[in-house]
Amino acid sequence: MVQEVEARSGSGYLMLLVLLVSQVITIAGVILMPILPKIVLGLAALLIFVGWFGFYMVQPNQGKVLQLFGQYAGTDRNNGLRWANPLYSKKSVSLRVRNFESGRLKVNDANGNPIEIAAVIVWRVVDTAEAVFEVDDYENYVTIQSEAALRNLATTYPYEHDQEDARLSLRSDANSIALKLKSEVQDRLQKAGVDVLEARLSHLAYSPEIAQAMLQRQQASAVLAARKIIVQGAVGMVADALEQLKVQGVVDLDGERKASMVSNLLVVLCGDQQAKPVINAGTLYS
């Protein structure tokens, strides 16, 4: 595995002055000196002329990967005008923070339900040598591997789960799912010299063909959960009412009258519509 090392390079401003002075001196010597020194100075002027091709610019948050005849020679991250061996080939690699949004992928969740899912990945290159030499096209590699990680995550967890289900769900546990996605994407991109800063779901929905059925299921689950809370509250209120009547000695009820009272109170408390008073002209037994 090729890892990043610092390139041997120098300040371009200093080399600009050195080459300029040397070029002027050698050209003047070629013009003014005798024939033998002219040959030597001519060769020196040619070498100095080649040296002019060693200049290059490094922008902020950019690295220059230098190669000599196919061999990695190092990476220069120093900003400004730089100079290195003119025979070096130079490739720019951006070190800036980048992000992309994956396309909407249609996959089946852990329960087999077809869903649509998409994510936003924020990343940057931290090792220019790995990014250039370990993968063919690191930008395309980031895109492909991030979508592959997103597919795998979507098939591992359900879209949503019941209260009895202890698993994470894509819909209810957004923060935990984001951490899982970031970890999985980072594992896949580690070899490309890429650091994943953030990964979050940007779109999550059931596929259109089952969306209506799942909406009805969610509504039914919500109604059942609400009913359960209402019944629990009503039972508690009835128990408190019977206890208060017994403690304060307001009325002494036998088992049958208690059952009737409990039934009436539960109907009133749990009913969808407002209770209507009924006048009983007789007794419980007639």
Rank of each mutant, 00 (worst) to 15 (best):
286 S>G: 08
211 A>I: 03
180 K>I: 13
77 R>G: 04
151 R>S: 10
239 A>W: 13
175 N>F: 14
179 L>A: 15
167 R>K: 02
265 L>R: 01
141 Y>D: 14
227 R>L: 06
29 G>K: 07
255 G>M: 02
160 E>T: 06
236 G>T: 03
163 Q>V: 15
226 A>T: 09
19 L>I: 11
257 R>A: 15
11 S>L: 11
271 G>C: 07
91 K>Y: 13
109 D>P: 00
252 D>I: 15
2 V>Q: 09
80 G>T: 08
64 K>F: 10
100 F>V: 11
228 K>T: 15
206 Y>R: 01
181 L>S: 07
31 I>S: 06
148 A>C: 04
89 S>H: 06
99 N>R: 04
80 G>P: 01
117 I>N: 01
81 L>G: 07
257 R>L: 13
1 M>V: 05
285 Y>C: 07
59 Q>W: 14
56 Y>D: 06
63 G>P: 00
129 A>N: 10
7 A>E: 04
141 Y>P: 08
32 L>A: 12
48 I>T: 10
156 T>V: 00
114 P>H: 01
100 F>R: 04
241 A>G: 07
76 D>V: 09
126 V>S: 13
240 D>L: 11
206 Y>V: 00
268 V>G: 07
277 P>L: 11
185 V>R: 00
158 P>D: 03
275 A>T: 07
160 E>P: 03
116 E>V: 12
277 P>K: 06
157 Y>F: 14
178 A>P: 03
257 R>Q: 08
35 I>V: 12
35 I>K: 08
145 Q>G: 08
180 K>E: 14
14 L>V: 07
234 A>S: 12
32 L>D: 05
154 A>F: 08
112 G>N: 04
163 Q>M: 02
186 Q>L: 14
72 Y>F: 11
231 V>S: 11
113 N>F: 07
38 K>H: 10
63 G>T: 01
186 Q>V: 12
193 G>H: 00
22 S>T: 10
10 G>S: 09
259 A>V: 07
199 A>E: 03
